[in-house]
């Protein structure tokens, strides 16, 4: 009886594992890895080929199929990306390449922070300098003194 129950349990586990295998992942991990470096150029999203969620996307779906084929042929990730860049130009990449004019895309935010820091340094240096203090006319001072004396005499 115990043996039968054990076999039944084993059968159930085996069937569960088989059933679990029936479903198939839509995007293979390797395709996704390469696709994450390529921009989806469908015009309706700002995702990459690897994570474009539109199942029937007219750009990403065929692009993923091609990546799969190229991976099957043994091409490296870089070689696959290069094929897409050759066909589509630099816009095929999800981020601008860090070379030539496009280096500016990466360096300008850093430059902005540095310029800002310099501006803060200048501002602090300027603001910490005491302002030129005007000499006060003695007659004005006497006027205030008289006023204070008058007020104090009222208090007394």
């Amino acid at each position: 009886m115990t043996r039968r129950a054990g076999r039944l349990a084993l059968l159930l586990i085996a069937s569960y594992l088989c059933l679990a295998q029936v479903s198939s992942d839509f995007i293979a991990p390797a395709v996704k890895r390469v696709g994450m470096r390529l921009a989806c150029l469908c015009g309706a999203c700002k995702n990459s080929v690897g994570d474009c969620p539109m199942i029937g996307c007219h750009y990403s779906a065929p692009a993923r199929a091609r990546i799969g084929q190229m991976l099957d042929k043994g091409m490296s990730d870089d070689a696959i990306v290069a094929v897409f860049v050759k066909e589509q130009g630099l816009k095929a990449l999800v981020v601008p390449p860090a070379e030539g004019f496009n280096l500016l895309a990466w360096w300008m935010p850093v430059a902005a922070v540095l310029i800002g820091l310099l501006a803060i340094y200048k501002w602090i240096s300027h603001m910490r300098k005491p302002a030129p203090v005007p000499e006060m006319d003695p007659s004005v001072l006497d006027k205030y003194r008289d006023s204070i004396d008058q007020n104090l005499s009222k208090l007394e």
Binding site: L90, K91, V94, V95, N102
Partner: peptide, 20 residues
């Protein structure tokens, strides 16, 4: 704005997407 600037300067379109 960089895709617009880059295209104006280099004549080539580029993508600046979420990873950037």
């Amino acid at each position: 704005m960089f895709p617009v600037i880059s295209e104006a300067v280099t004549g080539e379109k580029i993508s600046v997407d979420a990873p950037f």
